[in-house]
């Protein structure tokens, strides 16, 4: 995806990328861990409706208030992280793996296979990614699985082009030729030489793709095409809370802030990784 190609390539002065990476990773890990222990942490059941406690504003008892069914919003925001984060991570990782494999294939296999992969890439790029996602979800029905398929079909192209480029460059280099002459198989050349060269950029792409995948997942769920109730997801929570925006703003504002938090955390990780890998 285009976003990452550019955003990922900022050249700031080289230094230790450590803190940013650590802070970002810790943020994400904390959120993920909190999602699994949400009920214990907050003392509330995310699905428990309590009609006597509807629309409580944020207080010490309910930090993020309660929603239209009296459910604790903080607990639900945390539990939703357990849906959103894995899907966003997979939504970035699956196309990356597919793209790397197909890209390597296209780079190595000259002739029709390579051509076929690259033509397929051209074809996929003719569809704006989110539109492709909507169409695939339409064909497959709403849900997390459809989202993953849609994300995978749309996003592998960037990785394929990257890896193919690296393969094409490397295969002309002396040491790779030497390796091949020495009888190393394609797979080993791929693992030893191609991947290490392509990986840094691919990881940076993927890290930024997480943000895009998350915003697409949330947008789909917001429109009723992604995760549906009783599943708990940030976009779906925003949609549920939208009628109450004027007087009970917390119901839909809090999940929105969670998405931004993830965006910042991932940006920190991406920046940190880039620095580390480019050194």
């Amino acid at each position: 995806m285009a976003l990452v190609q550019v955003l990922g390539r900022r050249r700031v002065r080289r230094g230790s990328g450590g803190p940013a990476l650590v802070i970002g990773a810790v943020l994400l890990a904390l959120l993920l861990a909190a999602s699994f222990a949400a009920g214990t942490l907050t003392g509330h059941d995310p699905a428990l409706t309590d009609l006597t406690a509807r629309f409580r504003p944020p207080t010490a008892q309910h930090w993020f208030g309660t929603d239209q069914l009296g459910r604790d919003v903080l607990t639900r925001v945390l539990v939703a992280a357990g849906t959103d984060l894995p899907l966003a991570l997979l939504g970035a990782a699956v196309p990356a793996v597919i793209g790397i494999v197909l890209g390597a294939l296209a780079g190595y296999a000259r002739g029709w296979i390579g051509t076929a992969v690259m033509r397929l890439a051209d074809l996929i790029q003719a569809f704006p990614s989110y539109i492709l996602l909507i169409v695939l979800v339409f064909l497959l029905g709403p849900g997390g699985g459809s989202f993953l398929v849609g994300a995978a079909v749309g996003a592998w192209v960037t990785y394929a082009r990257l890896v193919r480029g690296v393969v094409l460059r490397l295969r002309e280099l002396d040491y790779v030729r030497a390796a091949q002459a020495a009888g190393l198989g394609h797979t080993r050349v791929l693992l030893r030489h191609v991947l290490p060269n392509a990986l840094p950029q691919a990881v940076v792409y993927a890290a930024s793709d997480i943000v895009l995948a998350l915003s697409y997942l949330a947008a789909l769920s917001y429109l009723g095409l992604g995760i549906q109730a009783p599943g708990i997801e940030w976009g779906q929570m925003i949609a549920e809370g939208q009628p109450f925006l004027r007087n009970q703003w917390w119901v839909s504002v809090m999940p929105g802030l969670a998405i931004i938090l993830v965006g910042v955390a991932v940006r920190l990780i991406a920046g940190g990784l880039e620095r580390r890998l480019q050194r």
């Binding site: 230094g15 803190p19 802070i23 931004i260 920190l268």
Partner: peptide
């Protein structure tokens, strides 16, 4: 990049 985090946190709070 390490100078990045402080403004980020401040911005997050401000935006919220």
């Amino acid at each position: 990049m390490n100078t990045w985090t402080k403004p980020a946190a401040a911005m997050a709070a401000l935006a919220a």
